[in-house]
Computed example of a mutant assay.
Amino acid sequence: MIVVQPVLEIEGADGFALWPVAEWKPFTFMPLHGALSAAEVGTAVMTVAAYNQWQADDEAAPTRSVDPVGHFVRALLDAEDVLAPGGLRVTETARGAALLPGCCSGLEEWREAWFDLLDGSGHAWRGHDPSPLAERHGDVVRLTVDAGRDDSPAFEVAVDVLRRGVAGAERDLAGFLGAAADWAAVRLPDHAPELVGALARAVGMPPPTRWPKAAGPREPDPGEDDEHPGHHPSAHRFVEDERAEPHGHDGKEVADGGRVGRSLVGDDAHPSGGR
């Protein structure tokens, strides 16, 4: 089975006290979806805000003591080009092989990269150290975990299966923005609309059209995906007969989004032997 998830590379939270954050191992990936707890959303917001501090206005430093939270997020709110370390993670669960975003890969550019792979050049470079590589060959996409290694694991997935997985990742990101809107309305009410707009730019999505009622932290239940703890299956799967509406990198709906069954991911993964 193939699982496609949008993931954010998390900064260390040692000493961070501006709002509650979840414990998360630094420099590992957090899947983004609508079932994140409030503390997990706080960790994601902290990471994106910290990652964009290089864009801060040094002349605004005096505001730090007056409004430390506002000062911390100001660079994120003011940035025209918001950056977020991460991208799409594609996992082949049968062997546990995973194509992870490399260094210099950003969530803000996931849409252009993956739809160019599916509908354009047929090639996607997703960073370095490791150097993940995705190449389309007809109706199949070959995913190489680290193209810089001769012995790198690689696997293949049908284009239609990957397209549905990417559509699921897009919906995960929409869910994350809804959770972030709930979080911001409580934690940063003075900056909430600006913050959610900045986060939307950071993950290559339009901002939510409505702000759903906050659901609060989610407790694990028997429906958890055992292979991906903490990620509720409904975050990347749809019920029978729901229509996927993936959009190309130009924001237009692709022609063959198609109808999706219970899972956006299928058993059409074909391990590439010998590597």
Rank of each mutant, 00 (worst) to 15 (best):
M1F: 03
V4C: 08
Q5N: 13
I10D: 08
D14W: 08
D14L: 15
F16R: 14
L18A: 04
W19I: 03
P20I: 00
A22H: 05
P31D: 05
L32C: 12
L36S: 11
S37T: 15
S37V: 09
V41A: 13
V41E: 12
T43L: 15
A44F: 07
A50Y: 04
Q55D: 09
A56F: 07
A60N: 04
S65Q: 07
V66G: 01
P68M: 01
V69D: 00
G70A: 00
H71A: 02
D78V: 00
A79N: 00
E80L: 00
D81T: 01
G86C: 01
L88E: 13
V90H: 12
T91E: 07
A94F: 14
A98K: 02
A98N: 01
G102V: 02
C104R: 06
E108T: 03
F115R: 04
D116W: 03
L118T: 03
D119Y: 06
S121G: 12
P132T: 09
E135A: 12
E135T: 15
R136P: 03
R136T: 06
H137Y: 08
V140G: 02
L143V: 05
V145W: 13
A147D: 15
R149G: 04
D150N: 10
D151C: 06
F155S: 13
E156Q: 15
V159D: 02
D160T: 14
G165T: 10
G168Y: 14
G168K: 11
G168F: 05
D172C: 15
L177F: 06
D182Q: 15
A185S: 12
A185W: 04
V186M: 11
H191M: 10
A192K: 02
P193F: 08
E194R: 11
L195V: 01
L195F: 02
A200E: 07
A202R: 00
A202S: 00
P206F: 07
P207N: 02
T209G: 02
W211S: 15
P212L: 09
A215M: 14
G216Q: 10
G216F: 10
P217V: 08
P217N: 15
E219Y: 12
P220Y: 12
G223R: 11
D225S: 06
H228W: 11
P229V: 06
H236P: 04
D241V: 06
E245A: 04
G248W: 01
G248Y: 01
D250V: 04
D250N: 08
G251T: 05
K252E: 05
E253R: 15
R259T: 09
S263W: 01
L264A: 05
L264T: 03
H270A: 06
H270Q: 12
S272T: 12
G274T: 07
